[in-house]
């Protein structure tokens, strides 16, 4: 991948990943408000707005982070399956995205309860978004730490690739190509 394109992919990935993290922080704030506010309108409003907001922010950002991460890793020497830290980031992203999609049903249930004027406030309040937001934060921060620290560890696939590259470079008459 040309350097300029690689940097563009990096910008896209960082933007979507940090954006996803920020959206989760905002959801955590909403969830805390939902469980602590004494104003019935505020409590109901929180759970009514969570579902559409998640569809417009969390889900697109999750997929954007996943896709840009895949594109970027495939365009760099790190690869997608050669280093464990990249592999773990991929797994974290995929699992978090799947869990998010499943959780959209819970958002819908909470919104239905909040919209029911007969439902008591105590039944509308739900601690689940608080718990899930905290867990999501932990997972996304872990992915961010992996991206920054890049702990060592090459997968068997990566070792085979490196071995093939070394054999190619050491072969008689081989021409070394500078890494870009």
């Amino acid at each position: 991948m040309p350097p300029r394109l690689r940097k563009l992919a990096l910008v896209a990935h960082v933007t979507s990943s940090v954006g996803w993290l920020g959206a989760v922080v905002a959801f955590l704030a909403l969830a805390v408000i939902g469980t602590t506010s004494q104003d019935p309108a505020t409590v109901r409003g929180v759970y009514l707005v969570m579902e559409p907001t998640a569809w417009y922010t969390l889900v697109p950002l999750a997929f954007a982070a996943l896709l840009t991460g895949i594109v970027q890793s495939l365009g760099t020497p790190w690869g997608l399956f050669r280093h464990y830290w990249v592999l773990f980031k991929l797994l974290i992203n995929v699992v978090a995205t799947v869990v998010l999609l499943i959780y959209m049903g819970t958002f819908r249930s909470m919104a239905h309860r909040a919209a029911d004027p007969e439902a008591e406030l105590s039944s509308v309040r739900d601690f689940s978004p608080v718990l899930h937001s905290v867990l999501a934060l932990v997972v996304l921060l872990l992915a961010m730490a992996l991206a920054v620290y890049k702990p060592r560890g090459v997968t068997p696939f990566g070792q085979r690739k490196q071995g093939a590259q070394r054999e190619g470079r050491s072969a008689p008459g081989a021409v070394s190509v500078p890494q870009t």
Partner: peptide, 25 residues
């Protein structure tokens, strides 16, 4: 099995038990 796939609105006039639920229906 459907706790996270819920979308069913509660019947009007029926309220859930007191206390926060842990994730939906």
């Amino acid at each position: 099995p459907g706790s996270h796939f819920g979308g069913q609105a509660p019947p009007v006039g029926v309220s859930a038990p007191d206390g926060p639920s842990t994730g939906g229906i």
